[in-house]
Write a protein that binds this DNA or RNA. Structure first.
Lengths: 223, 223
DNA sequence: ATTCATTTTCAAAAGTTTATAATATAGTAT
DNA sequence: ATACTATATTATAAACTTTTGAAAATGAAT
């Protein structure tokens, strides 16, 4: 089980995240200040969620401090656009950032992405039925044979596959693939991709076993 | 490991650079004034990033001072265009300059270029998959065997390889190879080179593993 | 200087991928 | 059964990449 350290002084946010991440099967540690962070940093932590606006130190210092001690992924929680600009402009090496208010599901997906990249804590091959997804090589095999997916098809499959047994709404998938700030993409575009994905990976595209439709909500993959 | 001295009074910038460059595997020394610089200059330094707007001296004086003591590459960090003009106009002998705000990645690429030119330092072999690039000899090996690349093919490969895991836009690559002031080169020229490079270095040119296309943006090499 | 081979550049054609619109089908509620 | 809504399908347009081939430039060898 992976452990996430949340460094955040706003209790409303940290408590909410705490609950949510525990639900999702993570260990959670909470720090509301730089001081607290120092006390906890030597625990076995796999990822840090770091609020940039702490009371007793600049998020930046906390970031440096953590990275000096441990090489673990850090995701910034930023309050305002100017902060985002700083993060981006300096290219500090944050593994990712997310602007408040954020959707828990979106954060979760970023956490998973960061942990996946970090390597050590995961097997890089997801198996669903007769399909294998090799995350490192970005390759998909069906019955051991290469399936050629376009980059978007692959992304959609990956999002579903890394959130197994969870129904993802169209909006969740859309917002995960077409970056939030990008122009809005036609909702039907997703439907079309799902169709093409099914043509490529399902044995019988007319009764899909891998990507299941959950009417009124979205899609899911069951393992 | 190479050491970079950052001479910069703006903490936001110097701290960010400090972190970023350490991440990239450099030793970093920080000086926020001419005085500090004098104290540090006798350390073993391979390159200097020099802010032109110091509080206690003109950047030019610092520049002259450093170059008298050590013949190491100096890259100017300039705040405004007028400063750029001065740098160019005086032809002071800066190895390069970069205007704030700059992208860390761009700076990194210039640092590498400057250090490479400088010769003595740097690890000279980049490995990607079954490809080895020997920078000193400007040689490329595939499975230990020589691959003959033309000079432009080599340059393109090198730019991508020295910026691994970063998507470089066509424009970035073009402007890096065909000096900015030169006549504009047809955008497709790059595409053609990428194709030929792939023919030479990829195992299967139809599903390239080394040079990856990022649709709508450019190309990248992942390590 | 001329020839020949190689490298570089360009333009057009062919091939892919992505986005959208229009239409058809299937599921749900009344 | 009917109307309504959500999803699936099909077709197509637009954007982007790759491929091809040929012209121009370069450079080495005679």
């Amino acid at each position: 089980m992976e452990t996430i350290l949340i460094v955040e002084d706003d209790k409303t946010i940290s408590m909410g995240l705490d609950y949510f991440l525990r639900q999702e099967g993570y260990n959670v540690l909470l720090a509301d200040s730089f001081g607290e962070t120092k006390k906890l940093i030597n625990k076995n932590i796999d990822l840090v969620l770091l609020d940039l606006g702490l009371p007793d130190a600049s998020g930046f210092d906390v970031f440096k401090y953590i990275k000096e001690i441990k090489d673990i992924p850090i995701i910034f929680l930023t309050a305002v656009d100017t902060e985002v600009n700083i993060v981006l402009g300096l290219d500090m090496g944050a593994d990712d950032y997310i602007t408040k208010p954020f959707k828990a599901r979106e954060l979760l997906s970023r956490i998973k992405k960061a942990l996946r990249k970090d390597g050590k804590n995961n097997n890089n091959i997801i198996k669903i039925d007769n399909i294998e997804i090799d995350i490192k090589q970005a390759k998909v095999l069906k019955n051991g044979k290469d399936v050629m997916l376009t980059s978007l098809e692959y992304k959609i499959l990956l999002i579903l596959a890394t959130n197994p047994n969870v129904v993802l709404t169209r909006e969740q998938i859309l917002s995960d693939i077409w970056d939030v700030n990008e122009c809005f993409v036609n909702d039907n575009t997703l439907t079309v991709y799902i169709k093409r994905l099914r043509e490529k990976i399902e044995d019988d595209k007319d009764s899909p076993k891998i990507i299941q439709t959950v009417r009124g909500i979205g899609y899911k993959i069951e393992i």
